[in-house]
């Protein structure tokens, strides 16, 4: 199961999630969304469902299962 659901169309490329993920499970995807921002991608294997990304993301990209 996906530990984190992401809606990357909301992403504005601030990368606060990357700076705050304790497991370095988030990185830039190399792809750009419709708003023009390079969005992020989560490595499900590294993720521990801690919710830090949900807490810091100003644009509600994450929901944690």
């Amino acid at each position: 199961m996906q530990k984190v659901n992401t809606d990357v169309e909301r992403c504005k490329g601030c990368y606060l999630c990357i700076a705050n993920c304790p497991k370095e499970a988030i990185k830039k995807s190399g792809k750009v969304n419709l708003k023009g921002y390079e969005y992020i991608i989560v490595d499900n294997d590294k993720c521990i469902s801690c919710g830090s990304c949900y807490q810091v993301c100003p644009d509600y990209v994450f929901e944690v299962n």
Binding site: E9, R10, K12, G13, C14, L16, Y37, Q55, V56, C57, P58, D59, Y60
Partner: peptide, 13 residues
């Protein structure tokens, strides 16, 4: 989906 704040703005949190 409608938020128009700049990237990284504090308003969203």
């Amino acid at each position: 989906m409608k938020t128009t704040f700049c990237s990284g703005c504090g308003q969203g949190v």
